[in-house]
């Protein structure tokens, strides 16, 4: 049985989208991404530090590392998913999106518009405004949003064909903090793929997201900051496959009271 993930008309075997940041080294990033089986990788844009004008940072360690990461990502041949991390208004996000499309030669975009620095919570108003404009400009927008059903519906109205509600704030590893909200979104929105983006800290949490019927998971820190990132990437791969299988198999209904699993007919003599 084929059970592929379909996003904006492209199909993928893996249901894990992975970030490229925070790894101990570019080589470990490459190895972990490959071990994860992910076919979609997030990346970003920042001010180039190799200019020899005022910056004076030509050949800096940071710029060399950024160059290596970009080289490895190109070699891997995955679907690129540039983000607009750090943008705090629709205008900033739209400008960064246009710059990303030119460099990365893809109209796929992980749209982030951040409303609060404390928990990096998406600004729903800026997000919806930016999404509507970017869809008009031909972008395939994957918005990073809160677990708010109405915001999700407005993003659909704006033309998004994938939604990415958070499990918990970025980098916290708290897992699926509001399962009621998330399951409500899944129950109400069945027409497009839903991806849990951010907050996943453990493979069990990723498995749970898939069990709940989410189509995929996007994560970064949980793998990059593990003691053994490559091994953790394998763990997430297995957990996500397991969670999806469990969802397809259909979970049993929870019961309040015990029910014997061993047949009760033909009980031995001591029950007579």
């Amino acid at each position: 049985m084929t059970d592929q993930l379909s996003l904006y008309g492209k199909t993928f075997n893996s249901r894990l989208l992975i970030g490229s940041a925070l790894y101990p080294s570019p080589a470990i990033m490459r190895d972990a991404v490959q071990a994860s089986g992910a076919e979609i990788i997030t990346l970003s844009l920042r001010r180039q530090m190799s200019g020899n004008g005022s910056t004076g940072l030509q050949g800096s360690v940071e710029q060399r590392e950024a160059n290596d990461i970009w080289k490895y990502i190109q070699q891997m041949g995955l679907q690129l998913l540039p983000n607009t991390a750090g943008c705090k208004s629709a205008k900033e996000a739209i400008t960064l999106a246009e710059m990303s499309r030119e460099i990365f030669k893809t109209d796929w975009l992980k749209l982030e518009v951040i409303g609060d620095d404390y928990n990096l919570q998406p600004d729903p108003y800026g997000l919806i405004e930016a999404a509507a404009e970017l869809v008009k400009r031909g972008f395939k927008v994957l918005p990073y949003c809160t677990d708010d059903l109405v915001v999700c519906q407005k993003l659909l109205d704006a033309g998004c064909e994938v939604l990415m509600p958070w499990g918990a704030p970025i980098g916290t590893g708290q897992g699926l903090l509001n399962k009621y909200n998330l399951s409500s979104i899944r129950e109400r929105i069945t027409s497009v793929p839903l991806i849990i983006d951010a907050g996943i800290g453990a493979p069990s949490q990723a498995a749970e997201a898939l069990e709940m019927g989410f189509d995929a998971v996007l994560l970064n820190t949980a793998v990059a900051k593990a003691q053994e990132p490559v091994m953790m990437a394998q763990a997430f791969k297995a957990a996500i496959e397991s969670g999806r299988l469990a969802h397809n198999a259909g979970l049993m209904l929870k019961r309040q009271t015990a029910k014997p699993s061993t047949p009760t007919v033909g009980m031995p003599f001591w029950h007579q």
Partner: peptide, 10 residues
Amino acid sequence: LDVLSPIAGG
């Protein structure tokens, strides 16, 4: 003037 280049991202 802003000149941006690829970096890692989540």
